[in-house]
Nucleic acid binder design. Sequence first.
RNA 1: GACCUGGUAGCUCAGUAGGUUAGAGCAUUACACUUUUAAUGUAAGGGUCCUGGGUUCGACUCCCAGUCAGGUUACCA
Length: 488
Amino acid sequence: MSEQEIIRRIKLNKIKEIGIESYPAASYHISSCVKKLVENYKEYAIANIAGRIMRIRIMGNASFSVLQDHSSFIQLYVRSEKISNYNIVKKLLDIGDIIGVKGFIFKTSIGEISMHVKNIVILSKSLRPLPQVKSDRQGKIYDVFSDIDLRHRLRYVDLIVNESVKTVFCLRSRIIETIREFLNKLHCLEVETPILQNISGGASALPFITFHKSLNIPLYLRIANELYLKRVIVGGFEGIYEFARDFRNEGIDRTHNPEFTILELYVAYKDYYWMMDIMEKLLKTICMKIYNNTEIKIGNKTISFTQTFPRIPIDKSIEAYTGINISGMDEDSLRKVCKNLHLKDDKTMGKGKLIDNLFSDKCENKYIQPTFIIDHPIEMSPLTKKHRKKRGLTERFEFFINGNEIANSYSELNDPIEQLKRFKEQLQLAENGDDEAMFIDYDFIRALEFGMPPNAGIGIGIDRLVMFLTKTTSIQEILLFPQSKTKA
RNA sequence: GACCUGGUAGCUCAGUAGGUUAGAGCAUUACACUUUUAAUGUAAGGGUCCUGGGUUCGACUCCCAGUCAGGUUACCA
């Protein structure tokens, strides 16, 4: 234990000896939050507030400190003769302690809105010193708690001392709230489907495997909830969505966390054109709600949500950036193309993965402005309906902003015989060594055999969307507790 | 996965071209101070220099291995 921690424990014991409870059980009445008090400043208004002591300036018989609550900061002014327990304030309170104070609001000689404290109670004694982040009158910040690893491991500390971190999570919440409101207005129903699944399906990814003791069977943590939501559509709901935590057993970097959030939405009797219109409306709504603007500046780029988003077929996109027309190519010629462009082309990769790779490598990062990439080849879209006109392609789109894929959507395949055939093709890929290929989900096939209305579905990467809208470059910054290796 | 960089006090960082007792600022402790603003002044305490091994008379410093992290790159949403 550090010297400072020992001293705080000694103080805690002294407080106990005086007969004061350091962790009282009773609720503490709060009359207002700091932000409201400051915004609606009324001289000598009495208030009751609570929060954390962030700074202490003791000066003989008068002391100042700074109290932080969820909304803001306020300076506290304490005078010895106005308060019964001044010695406790002076000797036994620390930065980090959570206290409740009652007093009146006034302005100091230099005009800082402060509370003149008449009564002070300890609500929670803090036993560890906080990092000391200080700022001067010009607002310049010194000694920021900046060690990225420590900030993420001690996120609670990060939230206490770094105000901008709190802002990011408020924004995240508002984005999700906006989406939920938007979908509810479309008369969609929010549902919940299993995270523990017997068969991992709905996407191409390596799952986490766990074990159910009393059933004595392995279970997978879901990599997607698509197949379950479609079962719900079979059941007769016509518009459903779920904010799903998905799990994929892959590496961790600044755009990947093993668990992440995807919004999946399915609407019966609609197709992917309809879904593109909805996606466009949804994004415009979110931008207006968050920034009150349909243009967002990211670094030196301005991303505009004002115009209609372009819809570009994937083969045209590849042709535009490589000069190669892949339409109608067989797997071998495609493999040659990839080889010539120095792209990965090992034997486990089927035609779908080759095209996916080609696009990701050569095209994806070119789409800075919101763009729909549409009509993907059938081999890379095992759950997607065949295109109504274009042979070998599907009715699918991926949506890009700032060079990142934000959403993936299609007219859902509802032909059970065709779906089984596609699953079997996936099985073939698995046998060739693709550990991300899909399993055959016979219960899902059975559901389709009962009849699923035609429908459009979409998965929106919530974390990526939040990263974009909060202008952060790492997923760890927009997750409260990102995954990292354990440390003692 | 590959490559590069880093790990020193509660926090932010210096530092030793191998050599008595490892430094600073904030924070902490003591004293002073009744409107301070990164409060101030005086004094004091606080370290497994990431872990293990090696070289050396001597390692926080050099070498090797490990570990954790950051960055670049590859793959995946």
